[in-house]
Write a protein that binds this DNA or RNA. Structure first.
Lengths: 236, 236, 236, 236
DNA sequence: CATGAATGAGACTTCATTCAT
DNA sequence: AATGAATGAAGTCTCATTCAT
């Protein structure tokens, strides 16, 4: 089930004092929740521990009791966010249904999850990617990978079964799927225009799906021929 | 040609004193040039007026003689950057050639321009889009629109002429083109992997173009092409 | 012998609750022992109750159950240290032997004790001597006096018996003995140069002893010594 | 002449902005002067930039305009202090007079200079010697060496000319001279007892000078004999 | 026009200490 | 007796911005 408290999953190593009790766990959850809001509204640099503490009605010092610094806190926020959306995809994926249905589920979920949180989290991840020392990236890349894994697996299986075309590398497929989604979300956010997620998802799938399918024979052959000729003419 | 002084085009509105002399104009150009470097290397928050001044070998105070603040300066940097890439597209667009050729030019240009400047400018724009008082967005959206205008016009004409399918709204087309490009660029940046722009462009166009064409039109076009080639080969 | 639990000697005045049980006494001993390490490694200000608690594997709060504050704790550390070295001198002083032998013992002991503990404790004492409310000094001076007492007594008796010159005040003698020792130790510490304590002690005594003797007395003593040795060698 | 502004001597490298004008130079002098007071009253850790700024009636930020941090400031304070006392010795040394007169001058100067500033500066140097990264020591040791150089040169020449005994290494001589002086000063400080510098100097010289002179022949021979015999007896 | 100088405001972080349990 | 949890107070340092010259 989605939205189960993700704070419980990884053992706390970053905080200063061990957190065994329920009270501690709740504190951590609260801090992470509020921090997510602040980080995603303001961005890493502009977010302040002062604001986080104020919103929680606690002392700033308390935050540093549980997290060893602002950077540490932001890492935790990002991790939890990823954990949530990964869990959501994992739990809801209709594995028994068709590839198209599963694909549609991922698209719809992505749009939903990212629209709810705004682009704030994207921007946070984005800005953290350029942190001075790059241990951040090392922690982020696996998460990113885990997140896109279900869809990539799906595509992989589809290609193996012949249902999906194999002449496009998975890497490009990923960009062709996630790229437009992010673009659509970004436009919706900056324009303050509410978005009909189901409609947008359908529309998007309507465009993407034909692209993913194995093309019919003649079309495929013609396309291959064209590519070869273009290549040949470019040799001069 | 790109790199013509973009400072000349828009009237200076942000600076406090009118800049009549050539010397002043040069100062502004220098400040903006260096600021672009710093902002795109460090991001908005981490960039400092100190560094900008140091790189220029001038006093920090001088910057404030020409710009009313850091925010103001960053707006100018963004605007000039947009002016540059818009000019680049405008100047180089092969208007006499086929729609496909024009489309390919835009894709290649985008990848080039954004990769050269790093994602720094993207991130800057992104972070500025979130500034508290958000008059920024109001200034940014038109720029974005002007930037994508040439491609949108192209698509528009293609749809009118029947060369491109009309069952996809332009808005979605834009996301389908710019979204994947940004995703590809982003991946290249975070992975520190150098990217073969021409190859990436060809690959992307290879996937996108068929999608853009009218379903019937593609088949028809390919058949026409084959016929012409066969005819051509028979001329020997 | 040194290292007998010094906690037993002075009555606990600083702690909040009387420490009657053996368990409590052990706690105090442990805290003081670890605190000495931390204080002498880090200095008063840089030492933290956090580190002391961590090294002991107890809660910080527990420390405050036994000591009313950091300052209080440091005072106790200093006192116990003095108690130890005073006991060491007291126990080992070869009272039956010559004044010179006793003098040599004190010198050697001082060099040993202070080198082993590093300059950490010296620096601690030094820094505490400067605390704002300066009741510290009042507690330190008597300790210092007790520590140097054995040597001062020795000198006193030596002057009375005519073995040591009487034209130098005791106060100056003390500076002439402890001053060079501290200087030597300090040099060894900052240069990270290991020091041969016995060699250094002999060297120092070799210079100091003639200075201490009555000018006539030294010559007389040396002549007597030669006579006795000559006599002794003739017994064969 | 002593007490000439030492701030002028080394080129400023540590501060952020170049300091060419007289105003800047004065600021730096003021900050260093007040910082010396605060550092020597409180010690490095307990001294605060807040107090320094308050005493000067300026903003804390101003301090950081001229010095890149607290550590940097303390280094400067120490350096200037050394420069002052080195200059004092250098300028006043009665090079035409007897070795004894020169020796007396150094002793008197040392007592004077260190008493004026209290033990604060000694303690500061002492505590800085244990700074985490040890670039501090690297800067301090040469200063220390420069400071003791005049006296060491003097001793060296005295030994060469036969006026001073040569059987004591210079290193030990240094400890025998500076050690007692520091001890005397320290006692005077902690006891809040005013000290008659000239009397103390005369007393000290009276004890030290005979020790430094070449001993008369018989005494020397007897001492040597004694040393050899002691060594021989210890071989068992 | 340019800038040297100064700073207010605020950031993150540390740590000794308290208190209910 | 012991401690988990919380925090007030303070510390160092940064930086955009102002202003007299």
């Amino acid at each position: 089930m989605p939205n189960k408290p993700p704070a419980a999953s990884p053992v706390e190593r970053t905080q200063r004092r061990a957190a065994g009790s329920a009270k501690s766990a709740q504190r951590i959850v609260d801090i992470v929740r509020v921090s997510r809001e602040v980080f995603s509204n303001r961005g890493y640099e502009a977010a302040t521990t002062t604001e986080i503490a104020e919103r929680l009605g606690i002392s700033e010092a308390t935050i540093f009791t549980y997290f060893s610094g602002k950077r540490d806190l932001s890492v935790r926020v990002i991790k939890d966010w990823y954990d949530e959306i990964i869990a959501h995809i994992d739990d809801g994926m209709p594995r028994r249904q068709s590839i198209r249905a599963q694909f549609a589920f991922v698209v719809r979920s992505h749009l939903q999850l990212f629209l709810v949180q705004g682009t704030g989290m994207c921007a946070l991840v984005l800005s953290e990617g350029r942190a001075k020392g790059k241990p951040l990236v090392d922690q982020l890349v696996p998460l990113q990978r885990r997140y896109t894994a279900p869809l990539m697996d799906l595509f992989s299986r589809g290609q193996a079964s012949g249902e999906l075309r194999s002449d496009i590398p998975l890497r490009l497929l990923r960009s062709m799927v996630y790229g437009p989604m992010e673009h659509i979300l970004w436009e919706a956010i900056v324009a303050h225009r509410p978005i009909d997620i189901d409609a947008a998802a359908d529309e998007l799938i309507g465009v993407l799906w034909p692209m993913l399918q194995a093309p019919r024979a003649e079309l495929a052959a013609l396309r291959r021929m064209r590519s070869r000729i273009v290549a040949a003419t470019e040799e001069f």
